[in-house]
């Protein structure tokens, strides 16, 4: 069953007088509980595509349907609620709040959802355990390595039990060994919970972890490669 449907998506940026076409007419389907990889070189438009699906940017044309809802027409307020309920994010640069501890960073999405303190603490602790950081719960981001920070970030992305998790170059700042650990972790959790995971990367090795690899080039879908038949 299709969970996310993109119909003739276009994205055009205006840079002063110039118009730069980032995405030209993309039509794609994402199924539930599968792991996708958007593979492409820098400037291919893969990150833009991810931002559109996640509701961070609005397309210049076309429609994005997530679980039957049109994202492209949502207001800022509705988008905030949509992100809170259905999606999780993992960023290249972790983006943890520097003043909060690991546990608090993981709890944050639950705070915004007004989950009672006791429940959210328990849930956050479980999530930290799942990423193997239960003994680092009270450390601040500045006291952790890059890999550990990314684990916290992954825990934060999954804590809301979102239907889809988006990861934009999640391993871009990590060494090879940690990269594979991280990929195992993130795909493991996604598969366990039958969540849709969409990873954006330029690394073909990472693409090997995905069920479906979508090659993007110059704002167009070049090919779709199904790894597991």
């Amino acid at each position: 069953m299709d969970m996310i449907t993109l119909n003739h998506i276009k994205k055009i940026y205006r840079m002063g007088q110039e118009r730069i076409t980032a995405l030209k007419d993309i039509t794609l389907n994402f199924e539930k509980a599968k792991i996708y990889c958007l593979l492409g070189t820098s400037g291919s438009g893969k990150s833009t595509l991810l931002n559109l699906i996640a509701g961070l940017e609005k397309p210049s044309g076309g429609e994005i349907i997530f679980n039957g809802k049109h994202i492209e027409t949502m207001s800022e307020k509705q988008l905030a609620l949509f992100r809170q309920l259905y999606v999780g994010f993992v960023f290249q640069s972790y983006n943890l709040l520097p003043t909060l501890t690991a546990l608090e960073n993981v709890t944050l999405p639950l705070i915004f959802r007004r989950v009672p303190t006791k429940i959210r603490k328990k849930k956050a602790m479980e999530m930290l355990k799942a990423v193997g950081l239960e003994n680092r719960a009270n450390h601040k981001p500045s006291e952790m390595s890059g890999g550990q920070q990314q684990r916290v970030s992954i825990a934060r992305a999954f804590i809301n039990e979102p239907q889809a998790v988006f990861a934009d170059e999640p391993t871009g700042n990590l060494d090879t060994k940690t990269t594979f650990e991280m990929m195992d972790l993130i795909t493991g959790i996604a598969r366990n919970r039958s969540q849709t995971l969409i990873i954006v990367t330029h690394d073909t090795e990472i693409a090997d972890c995905a069920d479906v690899v979508i090659h993007i080039r110059d704002g167009e879908v070049e090919s779709i490669e199904n790894n597991r038949k």
């Binding site: 800022e76 905030a80 992100r83 809170q84 983006n95 520097p98 999405p109 915004f112 959802r113 992305a157």
Partner: peptide
């Protein structure tokens, strides 16, 4: 700015 962005992305409402 960045912190605010992160909070927005992970589900903070405007009122939050």
């Amino acid at each position: 700015t960045r912190e605010i962005g992160v909070m927005k992305v992970i589900g903070a409402k405007l009122s939050d």
